[in-house]
């Protein structure tokens, strides 16, 4: 390996460590969130260096983009003083308050012993881990096995083959985890339905023009990535995330996407991916094959169908995460109830 490459990798790794340290140690939560987003973007570069472009796409889009939006949106809630009157809660907090919210004060003082203990044990663990990682033997891996069966899988990109054919179970259950997380968020939020957010400062003409222009382009890009997943990095996850972010952008620009949809369509959108996997798995069982085993001749088409359903469902779910968390938290159950009866039905 050339020294230039070692220098680049070393610099990236150093940057990763520094950003992680800063994210954990920043005095303000807002800075913490920004450092975390920066960490995710540098991590995407690290994935590219490790020859894993699929992971880089997923990390940049989901790990950083979506979670970053959710984190910053949550700051809006945490920055709000819980003791203020309910009327004030509907207003956006002044921007200064987000910045000055101290996280350091959350740690109780006079707890040096646990701190020393934790630091020492983590340091010891670090030494042992690094030692173990260096000692690991080379070799192993499943690259050859994945390549060998590629022809039978119906797609030409090994990562997609693993995701949707060899390890279809994982992907199915993962779509299930998304669904579960959505249900959990409904429970934690204490309400169902996506209340409209009153924008305290509506987006300008420029922004709303841009988003109007970008939304179709993003849907096109999502379709392209989905189709490309057969031969090259891309696929259901990345495409779903682009769909989801198109929805998030539309909502941020003030277009009420999800609350316009009939409640049944919302539920169907959330369930689609999981359901299609289940139907295909069941059909495979009925015709005497293993669960989620595709007939070899038609594997390509079937995988594309399952992928499309999964992408739509993933996009819909992550958009729903944001739409739900972003809609106004209402402590008053009555107002909540009235709103739901007007707009959304309880499932």
């Amino acid at each position: 390996m050339r020294p230039v490459e070692i220098g680049l990798d070393g610099l990236l790794c150093l940057l990763l460590l520094v950003l992680a340290w800063k994210a954990l140690r920043a005095p303000h939560l807002y800075q913490s969130a920004i450092y975390f987003i920066a960490l995710g973007l540098v991590m995407a570069l690290a994935w590219v260096r490790l020859a894993a472009p699929d992971v880089a796409l997923a990390e940049a889009a989901i790990g950083t983009g979506l979670l970053g939006v959710l984190l910053i949106d949550s700051l809006r809630v945490f920055a709000r003083d819980s003791k203020t009157d309910p009327d004030a809660e509907s207003e956006e907090p002044p921007p200064g308050e987000i910045n000055v919210y101290p996280a350091g004060s959350a740690r109780p003082s006079g707890r040096t012993l646990p701190m020393i203990l934790v630091t020492a044990s983590c340091g010891l663990l670090a030494i042992l881990l690094v030692e173990a990682i260096i000692e690991l033997p080379d070799g192993g891996g499943l690259t050859a096995a994945a390549q060998e069966n590629l022809e039978r899988s119906g797609v030409d990109h090994p990562v997609t083959a693993v995701l949707l054919n060899y390890r279809g179970y994982d992907t199915w259950l993962e779509v299930g985890v998304l669904l579960l997380a959505m249900l959990g968020i409904f429970c934690a939020g204490g309400r169902v339905g996506f209340a409209e957010t009153r924008q305290s400062n509506p987006p300008g003409h420029l922004l709303s023009w841009l988003i109007r222009a970008l939304a179709p382009l993003m849907i096109l890009a999502a379709a392209y990535l989905l189709w490309l997943g057969k031969l090259a990095p891309g696929g259901a996850f990345q495409s779903g995330v682009i769909l989801g972010s198109a929805g998030i952008l539309l909502r941020l620009a003030g277009f009420q996407v999800i609350s316009r949809l009939p409640p049944l369509a919302v539920k169907l959108g959330l369930l689609l991916g999981f359901g299609v996997f289940l139907i295909f798995g069941g059909a495979a069982l009925l015709t005497g094959r293993a669960f989620l085993e595709y007939p070899e001749a038609r594997a390509g088409e079937l995988i594309l169908l399952v992928e499309t359903a999964a992408a739509v469902s993933i996009g819909f779910t992550i958009f729903a995460f944001f739409a739900y968390l972003n809609s106004r938290d209402q402590p008053e159950a009555q107002e909540n109830h009235a709103r739901e009866e007007g707009g959304n039905q309880k499932p």
Binding site: P95, L207, A213, L217
Partner: peptide
Amino acid sequence: GLALAAGSNTCYAIGRYALERLPEK
């Protein structure tokens, strides 16, 4: 082209946000 459009919009949004707060601070 996309980065140009997105970048100028982000810049515009940040600038507008800052400008709205200028009188107070």
